[in-house]
Simulated scan of single mutants.
Amino acid sequence: MNLITEDSPLILVADDDKVTRACLRQAMEQEGYRVIEANDGESCLATFTRTQPDVVLLDAVMPIMDGFTCCNKLKDLDPEQRTPILMITALEDAESVNHAFESGAVDFVTKPIHWAVLYQRVRRLIKQVRLYAELERANQELKRLATSDGLTQVANRRHFDEYLDQEWQRSQREQAPLSLLLCDIDFFKPFNDTYGHQSGDECLQKIAALLQEAAKRSLDLAARYGGEEFAIILPNTDLEGAEQVAQDIQTNLQDLAIPHRKSQVGEIVTISMGVATTIPVPFIAPRMLIEAADRALYQAKDSGRNCYRTFQLP
């Protein structure tokens, strides 16, 4: 018997016959798979939802809910069909085989079970599941790389633009407030000139991490806007809420205390921020919110830096 671990593939066996379930369990466990059982269609659906198995071995002929109906319902629970279903049936006619595939099964074996065939088909399905999972992870990583800034790991400008447009449309539909923070590191060029570009990169990474932490909710987005400029999109946030985020950023940055002896506003790294808020309407474009935040940012710089200023669009 192969060693079974917590990482071993999980097989859901659904069959109303206790002896068949026991035989299938023994056969699958000998292959090194974990096994969980269901004795009818309803318990199969409940167990599937609770455990998310790698493969389902499903009997076609069961009382109350037959395997074809159960298979259809499993397909509804798993619309992307990440979990393959192998139908086990004593019905060998073409109509029943077609019915099995139309219901969502990806393969079948007939009763009495030819065990060597079952082993081979389950192995193939497990391999497909693993390959699909690897492909999905690779796609997620490619998506992350395409939408993240390589240095700071927060969202890049492209993602910022797409997300702002998305949230603008949603906020317009829901008539909800949308806020934007534009942040600029004060006297960053003198910092680079004094401490070197590696220290400059580390400074950008620390600021990005601090802003990422300030974007606490799942809807909030921290992004590198360009160079030493960052932005935070705050959906469903009014001006008061956005100001609170800005104040938290200032407090946390003060506590971080990154040395900057060439700064003209103290001995540590500081940032200036522009805060803008609006409830989007059809005749205003998202760039208007950016321009408002940018105007507030320049007001903060004109006011001596290391502060924030606000602008509320009508």
Rank of each mutant, 00 (worst) to 15 (best):
D15W: 04
V19R: 14
G41S: 03
D66G: 04
D17F: 14
V56N: 02
Y33P: 02
G32F: 07
V61D: 11
D16V: 06
V13T: 11
P63E: 13
A46C: 06
D66W: 04
P63H: 10
V35P: 04
C70I: 10
Q30T: 04
L24E: 10
T51Y: 10
G41P: 08
K18Q: 14
T51A: 10
E42V: 15
C44R: 01
Q30G: 00
R34S: 08
I36K: 13
V35M: 05
D17E: 14
D54T: 09
D16M: 12
E37T: 09
V56D: 05
A14Q: 08
G32P: 00
Y33S: 08
R25M: 11
A38Y: 02
G41F: 02
L58H: 03
A27E: 12
K18H: 13
L24Q: 11
R34V: 08
Q30F: 00
V19N: 12
D40F: 05
Q26G: 05
P63D: 09
R21I: 02
A60Y: 09
G67W: 06
T69M: 13
D15F: 08
P63N: 09
K73D: 12
F68T: 03
V35F: 08
C71S: 12
A27S: 12
N72L: 11
A27Y: 05
G41Y: 02
G32M: 06
A60G: 00
Y33A: 08
R34M: 10
C70Q: 03
R34P: 14
K18S: 13
A60M: 13
A46K: 14
D59G: 02
F48N: 06
E42W: 13
C71F: 06
V55G: 00
E37Q: 14
V55H: 01
G41D: 07
L45Q: 06
V19Y: 09
E37V: 05
L74A: 08
A14V: 15
D40Y: 04
Y33W: 10
Q30D: 12
I36L: 11
E31L: 13
I36C: 09
V55C: 06
C23M: 15
V35E: 05
T47Y: 05
S43G: 00
V55T: 01
S43Y: 01
Y33D: 01
K75R: 15
C23V: 10
L24F: 04
R50V: 03
V35Y: 05
A22V: 10
C70G: 07
Q52C: 10
C23A: 12
T51E: 15
C70A: 14
C71M: 06
N39W: 11
S43V: 11
R34I: 09
A27P: 01
G67R: 03
D16G: 11
R21G: 07
T51D: 11
D66C: 00
Q52S: 14
E31S: 10
Q26D: 13
V55W: 03
D16R: 09
K75T: 15
T47S: 12
C71R: 05
D15I: 08
F68Q: 02
M65H: 12
A38S: 14
E42I: 15
K73W: 10
A46F: 03
E37R: 11
G41E: 05
S43K: 13
E29P: 00
D16Y: 07
